[in-house]
Design a protein around this nucleic acid. Structure first.
Length: 651
DNA sequence: TGCGGCGGCGCC
DNA sequence: AAAGGGCGCCGCCGCA
């Protein structure tokens, strides 16, 4: 079966970025400018709408390779009304990311050693031809159009060359890409009236805040979110406050700094006017108005669903999914207690700041998650895996100490208390009782240990996490916590060392495989590959030794600076190797589960959200739980647990 | 006017 | 020896 390589250029009055690709493709004003294509290694040719549509394309029943293939798929479906099957599409951007390379066509080229110079002409042509002019008409210049066709053809050639040079996606990967696209097609229902109301409230609040800032600073600061504000504060605070703003490299005015400054309550250090400005910055930075308006703008005009939010293998280091546009991976976690009640008040324009809340932005932030809803007569069922990384990591180590850790999860004991028990050499029951009586933070220390030290962090990592979870210990106590956890979890250091040993040996012995726990590394002379228990393959591209004997590699997520001569390189170390294999394996469990859950509408790394008719809630909930708690064949013996809720609003 | 760097935010 | 890393979006601002 031959491969069809293909790329569209289009024009439309619809704003692609604001409305998203689904609305764009369905917009009545969207037209195809040209379609460049080739079968297999044939010469690239171009169809333009003034010609009859090529029958060979229309009748093609094999795979269609395109870069960001969702765009081509939706243009076929909605503009040309040619209903290729979803499974016919093979996304070469997904293929690139699955190989730990960047997704953008231009970046893959630069990443793989082609010229580092960026070519802006393509983007310029799009601005000239694909977007209406100020007077509302389109530019029809034949010269520009000819140039556009040349660009489109060049993109097909570049895509084909890159795709053929890269490892193909496996059958599993391609199937999981299609699972991702089905989820994108299903979309998430957005409560658009709620979003619009939120924008109103937030807009009014913003005007008020900006007014206060102008008055307090006597016009010096017109925008609180500007670097000028930081300098304005810096010039007016005392020496102690200045110290709080110093992060070791530069002065900052981020959330932590602001909280510390406001807590000083010393007018010599923080004059009242400065405190006011800091408070205003807090309010404005917390504003979620942009997110609400983005959700409303991306929602389908007819059915209010936001589509295309998930990027397959968007996390190119591990193949995890990322989220895009609506970005549902970073919605504030805390939601309103009674979101329906707040929603009702909002759409009616009532007062929505209860007595115990200080600010409207706090209320609005807690309504972002609940702005995602189930369709009428439906529910959202959301399940989270319990400590998925904490379980996968010892399982990957495949040693008896790791098994002992897994037994903690199998037994139903609280792993944080088990950590604390080992650290403080006190009985489990004692720590449990102290914790339940609210008399001791030993369990909290056990939690920080588990989260901070798993990927081979030390005292610094413990302190960083400790700050987040309100654990503040002396230097010696921190060291005790670090040592205690390592003593109780020897598998972690052992596994890190084993991984390091394996990848170093692999680098020194080209073409040979070296295993550590359940991971196998192999260096082919350019790429350091590693295989996961699922059979999925990941890599560190362009791996080589640096002068100190460390392995370095080009990292897709680090975009080069405009004047860079080479793609930025990262250094591999055993902690990172641990993290990569754990996150990747945890993600394989997610992919495995989602293949079996066709009602999925969203996922957030360790969480799956399905939407189903309310009268099927119980059986679907049971099924989601069962799927998530049943390890795939390749992970036999891995204990899994998940907890879930059923609601009509995401929260 | 568009681009890209920067500092900032949120989540897992 | 030690080391948090993985994402994406927003607003501001200098530069070309």
């Amino acid at each position: 079966m031959s491969i069809l390589w293909l790329d569209f250029e289009t024009r439309s009055r619809c704003d692609l970025k604001a409305k998203g690709v689904y609305n764009y493709a369905q917009d009545a004003s969207t037209d195809v400018l040209c379609m460049s294509y080739a079968f297999d290694d044939d010469e690239v040719v171009t169809w333009t709408p003034d010609q009859p549509f090529p029958a060979a394309v229309r009748d093609h029943t094999g795979l269609i390779y395109a870069h960001n293939a969702a765009f081509e798929r939706l243009i076929f479906w909605y503009v040309l009304q040619i209903n290729f099957k979803l499974e016919q599409f093979y996304c070469t951007a997904a293929q690139s990311r699955a190989n730990c390379a960047p997704g953008s066509l231009e970046d893959v080229g630069r990443f793989s050693g082609a010229s580092m110079k960026k070519d802006h002409r393509g983007a310029q042509l799009i601005r000239l031809l694909s977007i209406p002019k100020a007077d509302g008409t389109f530019n029809n210049s034949p010269e520009l159009m000819a140039e556009m066709v040349a660009y489109c053809e060049q993109d097909v050639r570049a895509m084909r060359a890159i795709s053929q040079a890269l490892r193909p996606m496996s059958a599993d990967e391609l199937a999981d890409y299609h699972v991702n696209e089905r989820i994108n097609d299903r979309g998430l229902l957005v409560d658009v009236p709620l979003c619009r109301a939120a924008v109103q409230y937030a807009g009014a609040e913003m005007l008020e805040i900006e007014q206060i800032v102008r008055e307090v600073t006597e016009g010096a600061i017109t925008s609180v979110r500007s670097p000028k504000m930081r300098e304005w504060v810096l010039e007016r605070v005392g020496p102690e406050a200045k110290k709080l703003m110093w992060t070791g490299e530069k002065y900052s005015i981020d959330k932590t700094v602001r909280a510390n400054l406001l807590a000083m309550e010393d007018p010599d250090e923080i004059p009242p006017a400065v405190a006011d400005v800091i408070q205003c910055a807090d309010d404005l930075w917390a504003s979620s108005v942009a997110k609400f308006s983005r959700l409303a703008s991306l929602a389908d005009e007819e059915d209010a669903r936001v589509r295309g939010a998930f990027v397959f293998a968007g996390g190119s280091a591990t193949g995890r999914a990322s989220s895009y546009g609506a970005q549902v991976h970073n919605l504030p976690r805390k939601s309103a207690k009674d979101p329906d009640a707040v929603r009702t008040a909002m759409v009616r324009g009532h007062e929505i700041v209860p007595r115990f809340e200080k600010r409207i932005t706090d209320v609005l932030k807690k309504m972002l998650r609940p702005a995602i809803v189930a369709a009428p007569g439906h529910v959202l069922i959301a399940y989270d895996w319990s400590a998925i990384e904490g379980r996968v990591h010892p399982w990957l180590s495949n040693c008896s100490a790791g098994e002992k850790k897994l037994d903690v999860f199998r037994s139903g004991l609280d792993p944080y208390i088990v950590n604390a028990s080992a650290t403080f050499r006190l009985p489990y029951e004692h720590i449990q009782a102290e914790h339940e009586a609210g008399r001791s933070d030993m369990r909290q220390i056990g939690k920080v240990q588990e989260l901070a030290l798993g990927f081979l962090g030390g005292a610094g990592a413990f302190e960083t996490f400790g700050r987040i979870y309100g654990v503040h210990l002396s230097t010696s106590e921190v060291q005790r916590a670090v040592d205690g956890w390592r003593r109780a979890n020897p598998w972690a250091q052992m596994h890190g060392q084993a991984l390091e040993g394996a990848y170093l040996r692999a680098m020194r012995h080209k073409g040979r495989e070296f295993s550590a726990g359940r991971i196998t590394y192999m260096f082919d002379g350019q790429t350091l590959w590693y295989s996961l228990p699922s059979g999925r393959v990941l890599c560190y591209p362009n791996a080589k030794f640096d002068d100190e004997g460390n392995v370095t590699y080009t990292k897709a997520a680090w975009k080069p600076a405009a004047d860079a001569k080479e793609w930025p390189r990262a250094r591999l170390w055993r902690g990172l190797a641990c993290e990569n294999v754990v996150q990747a394996t945890a993600h394989d469990l997610l992919r495995y589960a989602m293949r079996q859950l066709p009602e999925t509408v969203a996922h957030v790394h360790d969480e799956i959200v399905v939407e189903c008719p309310a009268d099927q809630a119980e059986s679907v909930s049971r099924r989601v739980h069962e799927v998530m708690c049943t390890a795939p064949g390749w992970a036999a013996g891995l204990p899994l647990a998940a907890e879930g809720t059923t609601t009509t609003r995401y929260s």
